[in-house]
Design a protein around this nucleic acid. Sequence first.
DNA 1: GGACTCGTACGATAGACACCGTAGTACGGC
DNA 2: GCCGTACTACGGTGTCTATCGTACGAGTCC
Lengths: 117, 117
Amino acid sequence: MTTLVASSRDLPHPGREEIRLEAVLHALSDPLRLRIVRELAADGDELSCSHFDLPVTKSTATYHFRVLRESGVIRQIYRGTAKMNGLRRDDLDVLFPGVLDTLLGAAARESRRLGGG
Amino acid sequence: MTTLVASSRDLPHPGREEIRLEAVLHALSDPLRLRIVRELAADGDELSCSHFDLPVTKSTATYHFRVLRESGVIRQIYRGTAKMNGLRRDDLDVLFPGVLDTLLGAAARESRRLGGG
DNA sequence: GGACTCGTACGATAGACACCGTAGTACGGC
DNA sequence: GCCGTACTACGGTGTCTATCGTACGAGTCC
């Protein structure tokens, strides 16, 4: 049976007012997490955890997604068996205008500079 | 005898091309280091280490200044017995346009929001 | 219900981090 | 040369981080 209710289990997210710049910067200072955020920004708003092909085990990936969620960078919701991840663009843009976009731009630029993609 | 040469001892800095965004974000994710950078941005370009009234011992302060220098955020030079610190604005603005300014703006905004200064 | 998929929880671990204290070096002034 | 100031280097310590493996829970499909 399918309903329109997303799911019963939901995960603890910091409220907008609880998001701290230092925590966001710390979250983004890890290469793996920065990559996740870049993919989220590029590919749209909702991606499942398993969409990302990360060079770590699943438990490590879970850990990184949790760091991103607890720092307020992403929002996670269960949708059936998958867990969808979305950037908290709205909140971040209100709290720290321009930060997300300039950071994403800088990351893209560096990636290009270092021969990545 | 005084000469115009700044000093003989000089400290290892990463070249512009070696500065990594992740390292910069990590450097700025510490409250103490973010505070140092904010003061540097506000007060002009060259401040001695002892100018800052940090709530840690001198050896810990030395450690934080080294993290900032090695990540490419600040430039340090000896000037007599003092060690002067300056933001690497030029390099950072070329590598990551807008990042430093939006980050400083976000830090100021958060500081205001949280009742600081 | 049973199998399968997706993701979690927990425990372990090696390394990094933030911090201190003590001892030492470099420079400037007397 | 001697002393004070500014900062460093080194060693130690407790905590946090990133990683893994194994065991488990929630949901879907047959």
